[in-house]
């Protein structure tokens, strides 16, 4: 699915990713943990093409294609999805309109006509049920005035609508109450298939009880410093990161 090799990236001249390598295969779920400021969100943003970051070295192959060569929107349409740690509020842009346009763009990329209004509404309803998101939210402007938890739910809702091959969920669990966590995790699990993959960035092993990862990685100081099975998460919870970064 995705193969990252020796990735170096900087922002405002400051190197954040310092030779990161990671491979995720179809059907897998990978968890990335690591201390604050380690570069987890940076990795997510570099992969989705945020221009604030400059890649100085390394290669990323996404389904065999050179990912770094693609525009932000084309990466999305190739099947990459980023669930934001801090979803952006966009006053004046309605959720429905936004999703309609995004969905149509994805279809256009695959040479398909946009869905008819009724087909689209059907899809919307189905996916809304999946993440148990309130119609009150989808009738508003994108993320505007949403609570922290609602924003995160909305990310999963968008993911469900766009059906990506690879979803990178950046701290989608933080700010969620217990029920919301269960719903969000349930949504992710329901969307899990043999031909897609998920990278979960999280600080809490709690989420990983709901979404069981195949691998757990520790990202510290811009590199993956340790990888292991799901049990690694438990160990990290107990011991922290010090023993790995010393």
């Amino acid at each position: 699915m995705i193969k990252i090799t020796d990735l170096h990236a900087e922002i405002d001249g400051k190197e954040i990713l310092k030779g990161l390598s990671l491979e995720v295969k179809a059907g897998e779920v990978h968890a990335i943990m690591g201390p604050n400021g380690a570069g987890k969100s940076t990795l997510a943003n570099v992969l989705s093409g945020n221009e604030a970051y400059e890649v100085t070295k390394g290669e990323v192959l996404f389904e065999g294609k050179d990912l770094l060569d693609l525009s932000v929107e084309d990466r999305a349409k190739e099947g990459l999805f980023l669930g934001f740690q801090y979803p952006v509020e966009i006053p004046g842009v309605s959720m429905i309109n936004f999703l309609k346009i995004a969905h149509a763009e994805h279809r256009k990329y695959r040479g398909l006509e946009p869905l008819s209004a009724s087909e689209f509404l059907k899809l919307l309803k189905e996916k809304k049920a999946l993440v148990e998101i309130d119609s009150k939210l989808t009738n508003r402007s994108v993320n505007e005035g949403f609570s922290g938890g609602e924003k995160k739910k909305n990310e999963i809702f968008q993911m469900a609508m766009l059906d990506p091959k690879l979803a990178i969920l950046d701290e989608t669990d933080s700010g969620l109450d217990i029920d919301a966590l269960r719903i969000v995790a349930g949504g992710v699990n329901k969307l899990r298939r043999k031909d897609n993959a998920t990278i979960i960035i999280t600080h809490y092993q709690r989420l990983l009880e709901h979404i069981v990862p195949d691998f757990v990685h520790v990202l510290a100081d811009g590199k993956i410093v340790k990888s292991g099975p799901k049990e690694l998460a438990l160990e990290l919870e107990e011991k922290g990161y010090d023993w790995l970064t010393r």
Binding site: G49, V72, E73, A76, F81, A102
Partner: peptide, 18 residues
């Protein structure tokens, strides 16, 4: 916000217009 829209597959010009 434009970046956010782009990450959902919406081209820059369209995001700008929105």
């Amino acid at each position: 916000a434009i970046y956010y829209l782009q990450t959902r597959g919406i081209p820059y010009n369209e995001a700008y217009r929105l």
